[in-house]
Computed example of a mutant assay.
Amino acid sequence: MSIARRADVTASAESPARVLAWDLPTRLAKWLLAALVGLAFASKYYGDIGLVWHQWNGLAILVLVVFRLFWGIVGGSTARFAGFLRGPGAVAAYAASLLRGRPQHFLGHSPAGGWMVAALLALVAAQGLTGLFTSDDIVVYGPMTAVASDATIASASAWHQRLYPFLLALIGLHVAVNVAYSLFGRDNLIAAMITGRKPAGSFVDRAPATPGAIGRALACLAAAIAVVFGGIALAGGDPFP
C-alpha cells in the first residue's frame, strides 16, 4: 500500500463519517435571511435617511421568505415542511426524551426546532408585509401606501412596531438554543448549518438527506421574485422604493 493510500485510510479511521444534513440552497437561504434581518434592524437606526435601504432589505426578506416556502415544498428532504413539521405527539415525545436525558436525534430539524423555524418565518413575513403599508407621514412611504387607506396604513404601521420586540425575542431564543445544543448536545448545529453535514449516527429521520436540485432552487428564486415584485405592481403599489 502506498504512503498516500495509508494516510487516507488513517485519516478516515480517525475522522468520524459525516452525512449530508442540509443542502446548499437551504443553508444559503438561512444565512442570507439572518444577514438581511440584521441589516434591516441596523438600517432602521443608523444612517439610512428616508429608510431606502431598510425598504430594500424588507423586499429582499420577503423574496427569501417566499423562496423558503417554495423550497419547503420541492427542496431537499430536510428542507421540506412535510419532513420536519410534526404533530403534538412528536413534539411531546421529543420533550420527554430531553427530560429523560436521552434526547432523540434528528438529521434535520427536531419537532421543536421545526416549529421554531415556522414561527420565525411567520414573524419575519408579518414584519415584512406590514412594512409594505407603513408610513411616518414625513419621509417614509411603504410600497403599498399609495393604494392603502389611512386606516390600513395606521394599523400596519402600529403592527410593524408591535411585532418588532417579539421577533427580537424569538431570534434571541433561537440563537441561544442553537448555541447551547452545539456546546452541550451531540451535534454542533451551527457548524452543520455551515457545512451541511453531521457526524453519522442513529437518527429518527432518514439519513443521509436527499439534496434539492440547484436548477429547481433557481426556479424557486425566480418565482419568489416574481411573486413579491409582481404582486406589489399588480396591486397598484411601487415595487421600487
Score class of each variant (00 low, 15 high):
residue 198 K to M: 07
residue 48 D to C: 03
residue 48 D to T: 04
residue 89 G to M: 06
residue 8 D to G: 15
residue 34 A to G: 06
residue 149 S to T: 15
residue 73 I to H: 10
residue 88 P to W: 09
residue 53 W to P: 01
residue 59 L to R: 07
residue 132 L to T: 02
residue 7 A to F: 13
residue 210 T to F: 07
residue 193 M to H: 12
residue 219 A to V: 12
residue 147 V to Y: 12
residue 63 V to C: 09
residue 15 S to N: 14
residue 148 A to W: 05
residue 213 A to E: 11
residue 85 L to C: 01
residue 199 P to F: 00
residue 21 A to I: 06
residue 132 L to R: 04
residue 235 A to R: 06
residue 127 Q to K: 07
residue 222 A to R: 06
residue 81 F to L: 14
residue 45 Y to Q: 12
residue 137 D to S: 12
residue 150 D to G: 15
residue 208 P to G: 08
residue 33 L to F: 01
residue 40 A to G: 13
residue 123 L to G: 08
residue 57 N to A: 11
residue 92 A to R: 13
residue 204 V to D: 10
residue 241 P to W: 08
residue 236 G to E: 08
residue 41 F to L: 13
residue 130 T to L: 13
residue 111 P to L: 09
residue 65 V to Y: 03
residue 133 F to T: 00
residue 228 V to K: 02
residue 125 A to P: 07
residue 204 V to L: 14
residue 177 V to Y: 03
residue 158 A to D: 09
residue 100 R to P: 03
residue 229 F to N: 02
residue 168 L to M: 14
residue 89 G to Y: 00
residue 46 Y to W: 15
residue 164 Y to H: 14
residue 226 A to Q: 08
residue 58 G to Q: 04
residue 199 P to Q: 12
residue 121 L to W: 10
residue 15 S to F: 02
residue 141 Y to R: 12
residue 62 L to H: 03
residue 240 F to H: 10
residue 13 A to Y: 11
residue 8 D to Y: 09
residue 153 I to A: 02
residue 142 G to C: 07
residue 78 T to N: 13
residue 129 L to I: 15
residue 31 W to I: 08
residue 91 V to T: 05
residue 85 L to W: 08
residue 61 I to M: 14
residue 81 F to V: 11
residue 109 H to W: 03
residue 31 W to T: 08
residue 225 I to C: 11
residue 99 L to Q: 13
residue 232 I to A: 02
residue 223 A to Q: 05
residue 35 A to M: 09
residue 173 L to P: 01
residue 187 D to L: 15
residue 189 L to F: 00
residue 163 L to S: 09
residue 219 A to R: 13
residue 106 F to S: 00
residue 232 I to C: 01
residue 93 A to I: 03
residue 92 A to Y: 02
residue 55 Q to K: 10
residue 165 P to V: 12
residue 183 L to K: 04
residue 97 S to I: 11
residue 153 I to L: 03
residue 193 M to C: 10
residue 11 A to S: 13
residue 172 G to C: 06
residue 24 L to W: 14
